[in-house]
Amino acid sequence: MTDTAMAATALGKRFGRRGGWALRDCAFRLPAGRVCAVVGPNGAGKSTLLALAAGLLAPTEGGVTVLGTDPASARARVGYVAQDKPLYPQLTVAETLRVGADLNPDRWDAETAGRIVSAGELDPKKKIRSLSGGQRTRVALALALGKRPELLLLDEPMADLDPLARHELMGTLMARAAQYGTTIVMSSHVVAELEDSCDHLLLVGGGRIRLAGEIDDLLGAHARVSTAVSTTAGAAGPAPATGGAPGGPPDLAPHTVVESRVTGRQLTALVRPAGPLAEDWRASTPSLEELVLAYLRNPQAAPLTPAEPEEAAV
C-alpha cells in the first residue's frame, strides 16, 4: 500500500513524430483516497492524461506511476472507463457482467455490479448495442466498480447521463470512496458538475497542469478582490499600504495576479496574495468555477502546482 494514488514527473505525450504535444511537463501527486476532478477545456489533454495513467498510452517523455508502480503492473487494481464507454455491442448486459466476473476472478463484486445495473432498470437480456448512451455508461460503471478498484479513472463519466442518473451514480461513487477509500479521478469540462463531489483538482490547459492540489487549499490561496480605482482621501480606515497612488489604479503587487479588470471606477481581480491585502480592498474567497475560469481565460497566469515552492508558504 502506498499513500500516493498517482504521480507524474515531466510527463509528456506527443502523437506522431511531427504532431503537437498533447501533454507536456506535467508534474503532480495525487494522494490516495481523494476524489479528484480533472478539469479543462476540450482538447486540453485530459483524456490523454487518463489514458496514460491507465497504461493505454505510453508516455513520450517522463513518466507516471499509479498505486506505487507502473500503470501496466497496477492494471488489476485500476478501473478505467474511457470517454466512449467501449463495450462489446453484441453481448447482452448479463453477458457483459459475466465477462467482468471472468476477467477479474479474485476481485469481482457481483452484488455491486448487479445493483448498479438494476438501479437503471436495465433488462439483463438486452444487447449492449440497443442501449442508449446513458445506459451504456451505467453498464461501464458497473464493470469498473465490480472490479473493486483501488483507483478509478473516469473520463467524462457523467456526460451521457440524465440528471437523475447522474445524481444516483455520483452518489454510488461517493459511497464507494467513503466506504473503501477508493481514489477516484474524474474528468469533465463542466466544473460545476464536480464541485461538490471532488476534494482535489487537476486543471489541465494547453497540455500543461495549471493548478494541482486540494481544492480547499487552492481556493484559500486565492482571493477575489475589488476596490475603487481612484482612492479618495478620507476613506474609512487607515491609509492602505499598497493601495497605489491616489487617482491611479491600485497597485496589485506584490500579489500574483491571475486576472484583473477595470469596470468604471471599480477594479476587480483574482490574485494569489503574497502577504496581507490592502485594508480598503474587499476580498472574498473565489468559488471553484471562478478560479478555474480565471485561469483558463488567462493562459499566461503562473501555474500553481505542488512542485512549486510557493505551496509551502500557504
Binding site: H167, G171, M174, A175, A177, A178, D196, S197, C198, D199
Partner: peptide, 11 residues
C-alpha cells in the same frame, strides 16, 4: 454521500 453525491470529506 450516497444520498447527496457530495464528497465524503465534506461530511
Amino acid at each position: 454521500v450516497e444520498a447527496t453525491a457530495i464528497n465524503p470529506n465534506t461530511v
